[in-house]
Design a protein around this nucleic acid. Structure first.
Lengths: 189, 189
DNA sequence: AAAAACTCTTGACATTTATCAAGACAAATA
DNA sequence: TATTTGTCTTGATAAATGTCAAGAGTTTTT
């Protein structure tokens, strides 16, 4: 039931069988069908969520009704709204399944408990946070430095597996381009 | 000598006098004159750096010689190249003082020592990392969603103190706009 | 199987933003 | 003080990207 998470943890750091039991104790599985929402703008996000199967998008809708995707999360990635999680404020993002998806939810309090009882887990998650931050800095750099074409090629490099799973207009939204511009960038060469 | 850092730490979490001594032990003060570099692309960054006075910019230069500023850091903020720090790889960023600046450097090994000996410090820095990540997500959102004008107004909101300290063309670089466009955005209205 | 919804492309055109060049100040330096 | 350097603005023009509209395939739903 939580096998994918266990395998993930074992691959990332040393964890004992007892510790695995502690983790399992606080996990809850949630199944989402394609197009179902994991989080809706306005709700408070109180979990850490591990995608064990499938794919979700995190996005916002502006006043003009335009969607802006700030993240895709597929198997073996974490998702959620950090702002809402940290400050207990209403989420500004929506999270929606792009495929049938399985998510393992760990409530905030339990998650903090894991940090205390499993130091290796805490260390790893902090390192992961660092890496995630570095990735987001790279994305900022791409955003302010690259042309439409360069942004797309950068996306191919950094998210090679997503290109065939995500509709093109969503990649455009993720990159801050119109779908038409992305289409033209792709066909031309 | 390290007063500003001490005051900062005391304002952020509970820290004992003994712990402050431990911190002082590993601090090194570095003074930079305006236009001096704290880090040059290609060097490995091995510190955590606290700005106790002044202002620096973190930027990259592309093949066309164009500079792209990904961060400003002023008093009571940390700076450095996380990628280089975490992976011991050559830095891809330059860090340059925009004013006469004082930086407190703590070498990587010592910094990890502080994490072990001062749990409150570790907890706080992890929380700070979370907040920094949230800020960078907000910036990504602005980058893919906003027009030039909206980007500038967002900058005014998120960095109100910098507008009068940083040359306008550097704000443009930070926002991914040409200096001329930013100038026009500002005068119009 | 038919209908509906979604996805991508393409063309014509509009808008935004960048580029190039010049000039006016202001600040830093000799 | 004179000179140089840096900063910002403005205009003319070019280039990049967005918008609107249509159509052709796909996939999903009924």
């Amino acid at each position: 039931m939580f096998d994918n998470l266990i395998l993930y943890l074992q691959s990332k750091f040393t964890i004992t069988d007892e510790e695995i039991e502690i983790v399992k104790q606080v996990c809850r599985l949630k199944k989402l069908r394609k197009r179902q929402y994991l989080l809706q703008e306005g709700d408070v996000w109180r979990y850490n969520a591990f995608i064990s199967k499938g794919l979700v998008r995190t996005f916002r809708v502006d006043e003009k009704g335009q969607e802006h995707i700030i993240q895709f999360s597929s198997e073996n990635w974490w998702t959620g709204d950090r702002q809402s999680y940290i400050t207990d404020s209403p989420a500004r993002y929506n999270i929606e399944a792009l495929e049938d998806t399985e998510v393992i939810l760990i409530p905030k309090g339990d998650f903090e408990g894991l940090y205390r009882s499993i130091p290796n887990f805490s260390d790893f998650m902090h390192l992961l946070m660092e890496r995630t931050f570095i990735a987001s800095q790279n994305r900022i750099h791409a955003g302010i430095s690259y042309s439409a074409e360069e942004k797309y090629h950068d996306f191919l490099k950094t998210h090679p597996t997503l290109v065939n799973r995500v509709p093109q207009h969503m990649i455009a939204s993720f990159l801050g381009l119109s779908p038409e511009t992305l289409s033209r960038v792709r066909t031309k060469k």
